[in-house]
């Protein structure tokens, strides 16, 4: 009898609602658009230009200075190119939007997030940014104003209005917008972790060294152990 009650209690517990941390699952976003990012100078320079001409209207890169665009060899801009982009901003100052936080709140209801780490801070990284820029659509329910409905954004309503003009683009603009999105996504994926290529290059050397060393340890072990039975 007692045992029977214990089993019942156990079963009851299995059906109870959860403890801390229980949450409702969110609606799923469509799979990200396929894109191959690249970290060659041409793409990164183009991305930097798109950033400075479009995104910088609202977003900053708090950890990237104008000088970094010259100093990171992967981007490798010349002093002239940087001077042209930065206007009278100091060379060693971070790349910063002219939009003040107050104005941003007044216009968009929110301060646009800093984009330095955006590619690292979202599932999908650069592919997410690429998809987001090309994810503006007309709201099928007609509730969200045009330019603020994005299929990749959680909840679909985004305060950023279609920066690259993807919605209602002409057929002959499509390739260009896609190239801009890819370039700026590559650029942001790069500045999210500026030492990533150096990391992988060093990694190859370290691994080769360790494999050789470990092989030697193995030979040593075999030699030392050969007469233990």
């Amino acid at each position: 009898m007692k045992r029977w009650m214990a089993w019942l209690a156990l079963l009851g517990w299995l059906g109870l609602p959860g403890g801390p941390g229980s949450a409702l699952a969110e609606e799923a976003a469509p799979p990200l658009k396929p894109v191959t990012l690249s970290f060659d100078q041409k793409t990164l320079k183009q991305g930097a230009h798109v950033f400075a001409e479009v995104c910088m209207g609202c977003h900053s890169l708090r950890y990237v200075t104008w000088k970094h665009l010259m100093d990171y060899p992967e981007i490798g801009m010349t002093r002239e190119e940087v001077d042209e982009m930065r206007g009278d901003a100091p060379l060693t100052a971070p790349i910063k939007t002219a939009l003040s936080e107050e104005d941003a709140k007044a216009s968009y209801g929110i301060v646009p997030p800093d984009l330095t780490l955006m590619a690292r801070a979202r599932e999908g990284g650069g592919a997410y940014i690429y998809s987001l820029l090309l994810g503006f659509e007309h709201d099928p329910k007609g509730k969200v104003p045009d330019g603020n409905y994005n299929v990749y954004f959680p909840g679909h309503r985004i305060a950023m209005a279609d920066p690259l003009g993807w919605l209602d683009h002409d057929a002959d603009e499509e390739a260009d917008i896609k190239a801009q999105a890819r370039a700026v996504a590559s650029f942001l994926a790069f500045v999210g972790e500026p030492h990533q290529l150096e990391r992988k290059a060093l990694g190859k050397k370290v691994l080769i060294f360790l494999v050789v060393l470990t092989l030697l340890f193995w030979l040593l072990k075999r030699e030392v152990w050969k007469d233990v039975h």
């Binding site: 990694g203 370290v206 691994l207 360790l210 060393l213 470990t214 340890f217 072990k221 152990w225």
Partner: peptide
């Protein structure tokens, strides 16, 4: 020597993740 070999294998896997 046996532990050195084990440590070597570990360091390979560890470094793979680090880099």
């Amino acid at each position: 020597v046996k532990d050195l070999f084990g440590i070597g294998v570990f360091l390979i896997v560890y470094s793979w993740f680090v880099f």
